[in-house]
Amino acid sequence: MQPTESEELVERIRDALRMIVDPEMGSNIVDLGLIYDIAVQDGGLVRVTMTTTIKGCPATAFLKEAVQNCVWYVPGVEYAEVRLTYEPPWTPEMMLEAAVGL
């Protein structure tokens, strides 16, 4: 995959992930800064690294599964792998302006 194609796919995935709204915060998980990294590899293999606002949040598994499903359905993605991390831990400073105004 060419670098430009890869960047385009990352953007499409990021846009798709904006459909997932954190139920408590009421803003999408991209603007909240919960998506740390989207890595595209050859063959349409996508690795998403994400976090949640707090470690141990009861909604964690639902959010992770939602991200997995959402990425899977983006055209160009053959396989999606979602990794949950708390390094670094999420802080409110990671939110985009759009989410800060909640």
């Binding site: 997932i20 709204v21 009421g26 639902f62 959010l63 939602a66 959402c70």
Partner: peptide, 14 residues
Amino acid sequence: YGPLLGRMPTPRVQ
């Protein structure tokens, strides 16, 4: 709504 997250529109907790 947890199991439906990302599959269809869900309300916020509020």
